[in-house]
Amino acid sequence: MPIIKADLELCQGYANCVMEAPKLFDISDDGVVVVLEEEFGEETRGRVEAAVRSCPVSALRIEE
């Protein structure tokens, strides 16, 4: 299964990913992304790709 990888050094807490996929992402008290579900199925791919593209600092990627 593909998984979501987040770079916590790059993340600035812009949270566009949370708006795209609230079931997969959240923002912690420290203001950085929390990946709620690392693995995702093909039916969710479009949403994950949209979340990756919505990150202003390219902190998210998909690992196949």
């Binding site: 600035q12 807490g13 949270a15 959240d26 923002i27 912690s28 008290d29 203001g31 950085v32």
Partner: peptide, 8 residues
Amino acid sequence: VNWPRAMI
């Protein structure tokens, strides 16, 4: 300001 969790 300086509050990403509150923002989201």
